[in-house]
Design a protein around this nucleic acid. Structure first.
Lengths: 202, 202
DNA sequence: ACATTGACACAACAAGTGTTGTGCAACAAG
DNA sequence: CTTGTTGCACAACACTTGTTGTGTCAATGT
């Protein structure tokens, strides 16, 4: 006996894949990477596992697609771009922090996936590449700020790497202890860091 | 038919529990939290799952014991204590970084457990508490450095929180991309950070 | 109107999981 | 030597997991 819901019309294959991926995203954000099971995703979607295997041959393919989509969405999200030089550098760092609920979810997924990434050399290398790209973007902004005289001279790549570490650690702290690391506190800490970089005023 | 190995003599119950926990530790460091299975631990130990259930009623108890032991061992490990003031602050931060293979393993286990911690409010609160303790210890060292005039005035708690974020992010980067973030590079980045804190010299 | 095809539900599968129970060996106490 | 007790192997358990196959509905092309 068939008691399924009305299926989608044809032709929106890719759109449906994104729907599925969104469900994956939500399950990961709430239950963590370890709690990411096909049946949980299906339940989140109000469907069965048959739907999932229809759109993705294997679980790994599903997760990879979801992570790629997350990265792509992260890259194309609306960014702050209020200023130039040091302000632009600050904006880029603020964009990483979990200051909004959506950003919290994204970072949550991110951190959760580290466990799997550290056990899988291929994934690990992929992550290393993505972080290196992020560092390169930061480096360009550091150099621009230096040209404007807003940051002291010094290897911009090293400054970028340090700033990336700083916000990355801040992300982790904010996720684990959101009560202490409120959005205001995060911004405060970041500004303190930038002030120290700029030259040590109080 | 019984073909078991020679069992230990009696009375070393707690010692055997630590052996088991060491195996847990190793499995977590190599296969990640997701790969931590009772049979994997048993195999690592050259035993069966029956041994594990003999010493621990449930898997959760086993993991909790292993994590507690990790924390305890981390707290009681030999620490650098070369100097005072800013040097002591630096030493405390260096102690966190994965500069040695053992420290890499410890941090590896740590990062792996974040996934589970973020999905479990109780664990999450526990981690938040531990991090807060670490911050408090750092705060004391910051204050001491300020008293010596080696660090400029400013809220020592905020400086400690920032430094903790910095090293924490550096830990993650070093684990994911050890080729880029070699021990020397890590120390270099940390010293750059401290130099910026101290007042912005190149 | 009919055939085809895409979109799923549903059930079953093998493999792996944590857990439980039974039983044997070695030690310790009487 | 007997008798308990500890330390563990071994096997079976109920369950969850990813995966596969089959069947049925709705949409589409002809």
């Amino acid at each position: 006996m068939y008691r399924g819901r009305m299926p989608r019309s044809k032709g929106d294959h890719e759109a449906r894949r994104r729907d599925v991926s969104a469900a994956v995203w939500h399950v990961m954000a709430t239950r963590g990477f370890a709690g990411l099971t096909l049946r949980a995703v299906a339940a989140e979607l109000g469907a069965t596992t048959g739907l999932l295997t229809h759109y993705f041959p294997t679980k790994r393919a599903l997760v990879e697609y979801a992570l790629d989509l997350l990265e792509q969405r992260t890259l194309s999200r609306p960014r702050r771009e209020a200023g130039q030089g040091l302000a632009a550098f600050r904006d880029a760092l603020l964009d990483i922090l979990p200051l909004t609920p959506e950003a919290v979810d994204s970072n949550r997924v991110w951190v959760s996936s580290w466990d799997a990434a550290l056990s899988d050399p291929a994934l690990s290398a992929d992550y290393a590449r993505k972080y290196a790209q992020g560092r390169e973007r930061l480096r360009a902004r550091v150099a621009a700020a230096q040209d404007l005289g807003e940051l002291p001279r010094g290897d911009p790549a090293q400054i970028a790497a340090g700033a990336q570490s700083f916000v990355l650690g801040l992300v982790v702290q904010a996720l684990i202890d959101p009560a202490t690391f409120t959005p205001e506190r995060q911004v405060e800490l970041l500004d303190g860091y930038l002030a120290a970089l700029a030259g040590g005023g109080s």
